[in-house]
Design a binder for these strands. Structure first.
Lengths: 178, 178
DNA sequence: CCGTATTATTTAACATGTTAAATAGAGTAG
DNA sequence: CTACTCTATTTAACATGTTAAATAATACGG
């Protein structure tokens, strides 16, 4: 049976079955896949003194230059309370610095220091090599398919349903019932 | 340009570029995809008093019946220290119980209590409905493709490389250099 | 200009992730 | 049987995830 035929057969079967087996459910597969990927990067990150999240922050800042905290949180997929602590940590280690926002005294703008950039650059080549290794193991074409499916998945699920099933955020100026 | 052609073009390009943009890298896409999926389930889980991980444990136990702690950890993708605390919590709430292993007094065997099963079953239908909703939004065929790609990804990355790049675990009876 | 609502960030409290060390039972060579 | 080694689980310590509340600055209607 071809792969396409297998896919079609399962798609047909999915209408009948109550829920996919736990270990093979979409949430578990995404969790295991991410763990499998991160396990390829972690030894290098740890060797350079970074947690996963600290590395995401450094990477975001190096890629984008100085950023406001809330934008950095969005970019790194971190909640503000987590990012707040992470920045404090990185700041104490002299890897990032902050300045007040230009037009808004509530906001902070974060950037990497020279030391931060140097440490990042000492770790980055091995991370790139790991990424190339992963690409080689999966194959370019299959990896591209994976990118596209995941981006579609994110786009579809982050958009609110027509019937508001996912508890949509209230709009900025919510009208009140008269 | 067809989707396949786009895929091929990007695959060709990937050999040149140093690393995919941070926000669209495989680790970030997997993280965002999982968050997007879990956000569909969380409101229901919280309504019933479960964290993500507590729900995984309950689901694993209901699916598989009583399980040894270490097997449960593997099944739920949890580290033993985390699972140890989670079981203590669920035990205090009367949702699971433990007994000593049959042949090994070090091990514990965990099972859901009647109350645990009842609470699980009160939350499960809405979770199933959410899964069906996600399936509808993505489409059966694309979801099946996603399952296959993720399972491949996990299988390939969890297998140790030929050159042991991912720090393979030492075998049970490691021979010593003579 | 004032009072109020809104927004950016931080803090608090508890659950989990992560790594190392501690505990205790099981297995094994001698 | 004893000493040594492994193995299953727990504890400890610190970082992050998550939710609610606190702070402080901004925006806005009147």
């Amino acid at each position: 049976m071809t792969r396409a035929a297998q896919t079609a057969k399962r798609a047909e079967a999915s209408a009948r079955e109550p829920m996919r087996a736990f270990s093979r459910s979409l949430p578990m597969l995404l969790l295991r896949a991410r763990e499998a990927v991160m396990n390829r990067f972690r030894p290098n990150l740890r060797d350079h003194g970074f947690t996963d999240q600290q590395w995401r922050v450094m990477r975001g800042l190096v890629d984008n230059g100085e950023m406001q905290l809330s934008a950095l949180a969005e970019d790194c997929c971190l909640l503000m309370p987590s990012l707040s602590r992470i920045i404090q940590n990185l700041e104490e280690r002299g890897l990032v610095s902050r300045r007040a926002g230009d037009n808004d005294q509530r906001s902070w703008v974060i950037s990497v220091t020279q030391e931060g950039r140097a440490l990042f650059e000492s770790a980055a080549p091995i991370s790139e090599a790991r990424y190339a290794e992963i690409t080689r193991l999966i194959g370019d074409e299959r990896l591209e398919q994976t990118y596209e499916l995941l981006e579609d998945l994110i786009r579809v699920l982050e958009a609110p349903d027509a019937d508001d099933a996912a508890a949509p955020k209230p709009q900025k100026s919510a009208w009140k019932t008269p």
